[in-house]
Simulated scan of single mutants.
Amino acid sequence: MSSIDWGDAPTWIAAVFAGGAALFAGLTIRSQRQQIAEQRDFIGEQSQNLTLERAELRASQEQRRWAQAKQVSMTFRTAGQSGVSDYNASVGYDRWSVDVFNGSDEPIRDVMVRFGDTYNAASAHEVEANHLPDQGRRTAPLAVLGPGRTANFESPQFQEVTVDNNRPALQFTDAAGAVWRRDEHGVLTEVEE
């Protein structure tokens, strides 16, 4: 039979405890690494959620920013006889008449209609205005156009051949201070200042 050398027993016991401690430490480190990986995944998901929420907020803000401008419309037609005769027949129109309607719930400001290269040649008046001494006509730009109101702008007289080259374009400032332009085709764009 072999005998146990009890002098080495504390070393063996210490070695078993050290091995157990090393195993416990290894398992703890592995568990912590797993927790860190799970936390990184969670943070990544939260980051994606925040990015999506920010994108939705931006889209909502952009939609609100365009909401008032989209409710402002412009209709136009040719008006007035040119007075030029061609073989005793009238040759058409010599100016534009433009109606600007503010269909929003807030007023718009600095309402102008451009005809070709000129803004200030137009006169404007609110259609619903009473007959003022100046017949309701004011020099463009119209300072304020209230909600649900319409303003009429008329171009200067052009030669009949140039009327079509001087089509109207609307420019106005919304309640938030953004400047907008609506062209003859109804396309709405924000004007960069």
Rank of each mutant, 00 (worst) to 15 (best):
S2D: 13
S3G: 13
S3L: 14
S3P: 06
I4T: 09
D5V: 06
W6V: 09
D8E: 12
A9N: 12
T11K: 13
A14G: 10
A14P: 03
A22F: 12
L23M: 14
G26A: 14
G26V: 14
G26E: 10
G26D: 12
I29F: 14
Q35F: 06
Q39S: 07
F42A: 10
Q46R: 15
S47M: 10
L52I: 12
E56D: 15
E56R: 15
E56K: 15
E62K: 07
R64T: 10
W66Q: 11
A67C: 02
Q68N: 04
K70I: 05
F76C: 02
F76H: 06
G83S: 03
N88R: 15
A89P: 02
S90Y: 00
D94C: 04
S97L: 03
S97M: 04
V98T: 08
V100P: 00
V100M: 01
N102R: 01
S104K: 00
E106P: 02
I108R: 03
I108Q: 00
F115C: 04
F115Q: 00
T118K: 14
S123M: 14
S123A: 11
A124D: 01
E126M: 14
A129V: 08
N130T: 13
D134F: 08
Q135V: 08
L142P: 03
L142K: 01
A143K: 08
L145T: 00
G146M: 01
G146Q: 05
P147T: 02
G148N: 06
R149F: 03
E154R: 01
F158D: 00
Q159C: 13
D164A: 13
D164W: 07
N165W: 05
R167N: 06
A175G: 08
A175D: 02
V179W: 03
E184P: 06
G186N: 05
V187D: 14
E190H: 08
E193N: 09
E193C: 07
